[in-house]
């Protein structure tokens, strides 16, 4: 039996953790303004954050909010912790930046610092580096948040060596962005902050729709 122990949801310029809005910025804030304000609210010092593209920042923040106050990282073998993410836009937001840099042949300036972010799984890499997580990886692309796919695949991993997983959706496309990340672990009863919902499609969909956004 696998449990969801915590989750965070970011959209509408707000962050909710386990269903309650914990942080919000002005309704009109841009993607980058919002990400930067949310980062400040966490009072972290992680200079690599500032080099990331918007999708990696969003995934990084959502995972950070989901893990806050839990013992997730200390309770599991990091080599047996998986990261499974998904979205619709793949890395299209940064793809457009790279494409723009090569559109004009007389002003041709492709940059390796941009190009490296033209793969969606770089978000997994950034999370892995930050938290020293070395387990299974997969990045799926689906038109909409696909609870069936994520739950089925996470369960297939937990049937084997994986004992915990960071799972969810991290999507940035133009001015639209949304992230929903949940933490899964094999049944244990030592984690006092855990919300303990059995991992299944219905529970994931309930949690995904749980938050009462304030605007």
């Amino acid at each position: 039996m696998n449990n969801i122990i915590s989750y965070a949801h970011i959209k509408n310029n707000q962050v909710s953790v386990n269903g309650s809005v914990m942080f919000q910025s002005a309704h009109s804030a841009s993607v980058s303004e919002f990400l930067s304000e949310a980062y400040k609210s966490l009072e972290l010092s992680y200079p690599k954050f500032h080099k990331m593209d918007a999708q990696c920042k969003l995934g990084f923040l959502c995972a950070e909010f989901a893990m806050r106050g839990t013992a997730f990282l200390t309770e599991h073998e990091l080599s047996r912790t998986a990261i499974v993410l998904s979205n619709n836009a793949s890395s299209l937001e940064t793809d457009r930046v790279h494409q723009h840099s090569i559109d004009d042949k007389s002003n041709y300036f492709p940059s390796p610092a941009v190009f490296v972010y033209t793969l969606p799984n770089i978000t997994i890499g950034e999370l892995a580096i930050k938290h020293k997580i070395t387990g299974e990886n997969a990045f799926f692309v689906s038109e909409k948040f696909d609870a069936d796919l994520l739950v089925n695949y996470t369960e297939s991993l937990m049937d084997n060596v994986t004992e915990a997983a960071i799972v969810g959706w991290v999507d940035v496309d133009g001015s639209n962005f949304e992230a929903f990340i949940f933490l899964v672990e094999k049944q244990k009863d030592t984690n006092k902050n855990a919300i303990f919902k059995p991992l299944n499609q219905a529970n994931i969909i309930t949690l995904y729709n749980q938050t009462k956004w304030t605007h």
Partner: peptide, 28 residues
Amino acid sequence: HTPVILSNACISGILGIIIAKRFIEQGL
């Protein structure tokens, strides 16, 4: 079924084969 799309850099191909095995083992 809607195709499952996997985009995980240069391991995408072999990871696709590994995931196929896992889904079949699950009975899906």
